Simulated assay, not measured.
Amino acid sequence: MTEILRVEHLKKSYDGFLAVNDVSFSVAKGELKALIGPNGAGKSTCFNMLMGQLKPTAGTVWLDGKKITGLRPREIWRRGVGRTFQITGTYPSMTVIENVQMALMSHHRKLYAIAPRAWRLYRDEAFEFLKTVEMEDQADRPCSVLAYGDLKRLELAIALCHRPRLLLMDEPTAGMASSARIALMQLVADIVRDQGVSVLFTEHDMDVVFAHSHHIMVLNRGELITEGSAEEVRNDARVQEVYLGGGTLFAEARNA
């Protein structure tokens, strides 16, 4: 498979504390890959280095064979990397479709057009992105009244507006009800399959991880301790010990 992202010997230290230590991995085109681990394992730190919010202490990040280490977040975004966050950041005073239109204006370098005519810009295109995340029926609702799960879907639509080749999703189902979590990740899996977008995501819900990931990586105390298929990770003794305290949840998942 074609490699879209390569991370080599990534490291981040704070006054001698290693938050991420010598982490190397790759993500293939059209791959849905999970990065899991207990709280404090270094997942968000790793994401912040990939997207340019943090400068690595050492290591290199390559996108499509081109080095992006040290670039600013907007430069990395322009090269085809999108991101969603644990906490949604939509404009509550705007409607659903207006939020997507704003993202499209940024993508098309038309932010200067924020004026009385801006409401007409890219409306049809925005509606198509809302259809992708199954929110076209809520296009004209204000974001302030949306359920949290719908805000997560809207954030996904906004991230897709730039047509990223790689999408980083930091705990995409955090705070959502069980049924909404499953529905959102099925939607993401469909987008990966239909559009060939690569997705790297962090997640604490093991049902979501095992059901949808093509490949799983496990971080513990900043180090990548194993990676493999859901079955390989589920049966890994190190994962059972450091991530799930002896493997109780894995045993439950295996017997479910």
Rank of each mutant, 00 (worst) to 15 (best):
E3R: 13
E3K: 11
E8N: 13
H9C: 04
H9E: 14
H9G: 14
A19C: 00
D22S: 05
V23R: 06
S24D: 08
F25R: 04
S26I: 06
S26W: 01
V27Y: 05
V27H: 06
L35W: 06
L35E: 06
I36G: 05
P38C: 04
N39T: 09
G40I: 10
A41V: 05
K43R: 02
S44T: 15
S44Y: 04
C46H: 09
F47L: 06
N48L: 00
M51Y: 08
G52Q: 11
Q53T: 00
P56G: 04
T57S: 15
T57V: 04
G59W: 02
W62G: 02
W62M: 14
W62Q: 11
K67L: 08
G70D: 01
R72Y: 10
P73G: 03
R74P: 00
E75L: 03
W77M: 08
R79Y: 10
V81P: 02
G82H: 01
F85Q: 07
Y91E: 11
V96N: 07
I97C: 14
N99I: 05
Q101R: 12
L104F: 10
L104Q: 12
H107I: 08
H108P: 10
L111V: 15
Y112M: 14
Y112E: 14
A113L: 13
A115M: 12
R117A: 11
R117K: 14
W119F: 14
E125T: 08
E125Q: 12
F127C: 11
F127P: 02
F129H: 12
L130W: 09
K131E: 14
K131P: 05
K131F: 05
T132Q: 15
M135L: 15
D137T: 10
D140M: 08
P142A: 10
S144Y: 12
L146T: 11
Y148I: 01
G149H: 02
G149A: 06
L151F: 07
K152R: 15
L156N: 06
A157E: 01
A157F: 02
L160E: 04
C161G: 05
C161H: 03
P164S: 05
L167N: 05
D170R: 00
P172H: 02
P172F: 04
G175M: 05
M176W: 07
A177N: 11
S178T: 14
R181C: 13
I182L: 09
A183E: 14
A183M: 11
L184T: 05
M185G: 01
Q186H: 15
V188I: 10
V188L: 03
I191K: 02
I191C: 01
I191P: 01
R193F: 00
D194Y: 06
S198L: 03
S198K: 03
H204G: 03
D207C: 04
V208S: 09
S213I: 10
I216P: 07
M217G: 11
M217L: 15
M217Y: 12
V218F: 12
V218E: 13
L219C: 08
I225W: 09
T226P: 00
E227Y: 15
G228S: 10
S229N: 10
A230P: 11
E231S: 12
E232A: 13
E232F: 10
R234Q: 15
D236L: 12
D236M: 09
A237H: 14
V239A: 07
Q240W: 03
Q240K: 15
E241M: 14
Y243V: 09
Y243T: 00
G246Q: 11
T248Y: 13
T248F: 11
F250K: 12
E252C: 01
A253K: 12
R254K: 15
N255Y: 10
A256L: 07
